[in-house]
Structure formats: C-alpha cells, structure tokens
Write a protein that binds this DNA or RNA. Sequence first.
DNA 1: CCTGGTAAGTTGACGCCGTCAACATCGAGC
DNA 2: GCTCGATGTTGACGGCGTCAACTTACCAGG
Lengths: 228, 228
Amino acid sequence: MFVNGVNIRHDERVSARQTAPRTRYHHGDLRNAMMEAGVELARTGGPEAVVLREVARRVGVSATAAYRHFSDAEELLEEVKHTALAELADALITAVAAVPADGDPPDVVVARLRAAANAYIDFAVRNAGLFLTAYCRTASPDSKYEGEPFADTDAFRALSGLLDQAVEAGCISPEWRAGADIASWSMVHGFATLLADGPVGRHLSAEAQAFAQERTVELLLRGLTASE
Amino acid sequence: MFVNGVNIRHDERVSARQTAPRTRYHHGDLRNAMMEAGVELARTGGPEAVVLREVARRVGVSATAAYRHFSDAEELLEEVKHTALAELADALITAVAAVPADGDPPDVVVARLRAAANAYIDFAVRNAGLFLTAYCRTASPDSKYEGEPFADTDAFRALSGLLDQAVEAGCISPEWRAGADIASWSMVHGFATLLADGPVGRHLSAEAQAFAQERTVELLLRGLTASE
DNA sequence: CCTGGTAAGTTGACGCCGTCAACATCGAGC
DNA sequence: GCTCGATGTTGACGGCGTCAACTTACCAGG
C-alpha cells in the first residue's frame, strides 16, 4: 500500500506476535478482540491488510476460531469498516463542534461547513488506511438500511444537518438544498480519495496539496452559496 | 463485486476456457494477449478479478509463463490500469468533441464542461469494473511522470484545456483558475466513485441517482463560474 | 545445412490465503 | 457431578503468487 509515496504495505507481517499466550482455553471476548486487531491492521495497511489469519495470529488464536464469531472473512472486514466509518464521523462531528457559535448565523454555518470539509479530508490523509477501509468494497450490500440511503453514516447525517442550517441562515437557496448533500459529499470525498490513494497524493508537494485542498473547499462553498 | 446491487463477482471463474489449445509452443504475442485478457477480467470484475493464474488460463498458457513478460502480477495489473485510464480518457474526449461548437463561446465552454463531467460519471457507471481498476491501488508509484502530476492521464489534460478555454471565454475569473482542475476532478471523481462502488450506487433509485448527478454537476459549474 | 545459445514455455514445489470437517475443552444448568 | 452446547484446535483442501530447474523452438554464424 502506497500512501504519498511511503510504502506502508503490511509486510512487516513478521509479526506473529500474540499479546500473551493466553492462559484460558476460551478467550472470552474473541469477537471484539478480533475486530480491534482488524481495525489496527486496517489503520496501518488499509483494507487488504485485514487478513483473517493475521488477525487470529495477533489475538493468539487459531485461524478457524474466527468462524465461531464471523460467518466469513468478509463479515470481519465489514465490522472493521463500520468502525472506520464511525471514527471518520467522530472526527467530522468534533471538528464542527469546535467552531465558535457566536457571530452572524450565515458566517457560522459557512465556517462549520468549511470545518467539516477540512476535517473529512484531514482524516483521509492522516488515517489513509482507515479511510480507505471505510469505503472499501464488501460484497454484501452493507445496509440494514436498504433504501434509506446513508442512514448508516453519521457523517452524512451531520452534513445534512449543516446544510439545513445553511438554508435556514439564508446561505443556500431552498430550491438548491436537494442534492446538495450528495454533491458536497462527492467533492470532499473525491478530493480525499485522490489524496489518500490517488495521483494527487502521489504527485503533489505538500504545499501544492494544501493549496488544492483550500481551493477545492472554497469552490464547493462558492457553489453552495452562489446567489444567481 | 457488487455494483448497484448486482453481483458481478468474478465467480463464473469456471471458465478455464482457453480460446484454442494453441498449436505452437511459443505464443508469439503473449504480453499483449495477457493484457487483453486482464482488461476483460477487469471490465467485468474490477481490479481484484485480475488474477494472474486466471489470465494465464484464459490465454491458454501456464501461470509462470507470465514471468517472461511481467516482473510481477502487479506489473500486469498496472498495465491493465493504464489501459482503463486511457479508455476513460477516450470516452471523455469523445463526449467533449460531440458538443456543437457554435454559439456564444461562454455557452459552448460551459456545455463542454458539463459534457465532460457527465461523460466521466457515465463511464464510471457503465464500466464500473474498468473505472475502479483505473484508480485501484498499485504499490509502485505509477509515474514515469514523477512530479509532473497527472501527466499520464489524458483525461486530466483535457479538463485543464477546457478550464483554460473557460478563462478565455470569461466564464472563470483568472485568479480562480489555479486549483480549479483538481477541484473539478475531485467533485466528479467523488460522485463517480460513490456511484460505482459506494453507498450512492447501492442505496439510491435510478431516478434519484440521475437527479443527484445533475445537481452535482450543476453545483460544480456554479462554483466555477460564480461571479463574486 | 547444421549447430548452439537464448528467448519463451513447462513442471513441480513452496508458503501464503480462506475455509471445512472432525475433534477437544470448558462452563452452565439439570 | 454430568452432560451438552458454545468455543477453540488440528489437519486438510484448493486457490493464489512466485521460484528453481527443465524443455522447446527459433535464429545466427560457421
């Protein structure tokens, strides 16, 4: 796995280190333990580093023990994925909450949107592995939320709330509210992806990346708040 | 692999079909043949369907024969990836060329930008496998173009040209030109990704997707052409 | 026209992976 | 205190990428 030219491929898989030989035959909390080990793997190596056998090794348990708690290697990955998604949402919500709420409502809400956008991107850069895992492919349509789109991502709900506030504050004309959520998400997500995993992150200097980020976020805000 | 709820996972791998038992011991054009087989696999199954042994099987050759032409399974993937990128660029350039050039220059250039954006997204939807392959992770920094960012993607150069035209035509203020390329790319790419591989494609009805696409593209154009 | 060297394929093996069937161990409730 | 189900283990299988050693076919130079 390449992130900004630094090879953080999971090949110090020499590991095999298990935290402790584990005295009791039964682990007691294996499902959680495997999840956490999986998250750790994902954090440093992205989704393809979440390898069932390695997870088992780290927890100090045989590979097949996993099958008592997960139907599949895929199910483990999905669990990890949800955790990653939740962590992303956390970062986003925290950043928004940190924006001072005094001042003109329009200014505040724009500042919040900006903070959210930057938090999303920063998360993707700082936690590339987790970010990629959050959006990695998993065969099953990860929705207990069929039809109710994105209900599983708190991040998306936070964004929606912000946009509603923006309409209230008069920053966004009501007839442009619909679809603004997905559009905003697309832009930020696209930039984050191109940065964490793609050509932007690979080819651009740090300053160039920062400039591109600022421009991208401002372009989004311009589009959202354009008077026309 | 799930694309919009349709499982196109590469599990009709029953294949093993080799086009013909191949009479001559030497293939003659194995490198190309493997590439093409790889592209076909990628088209229907995404990057993870590009499996060295299966490619060899399809071409009717032993697995290790690949090593006479590729240093690595990764190198094969990368070759396929470049082909996918090229195909995407083609679709984009063709769509732009199809826009009638008569009329007010500003209108024309906006129409071209819109066409490019929609072509990009449409390609991602119609050729999800290839699209995902075009942007899939490959360990090596796929740049003979180190530092000269994106020079390997004709699609990006086409976009840059369009934006230059837009400045000329007075649609984009010159001081907003810098970074507009990456920002535009981000938005379209993000939407395409969310659609081809992510929650948008999985959870939204076709009409909802179309609406979201239109809104996303228009929001981008608004941001680019905003007067202020 | 032979001949030898090298490019292009082959076979068999290795260690990784996910997964299955069969067996072992523990602990909760009769 | 026994039993039985939940939880772990072992060993095996086939698929993967890759390596070393072997074979085949072509092409140049005599």
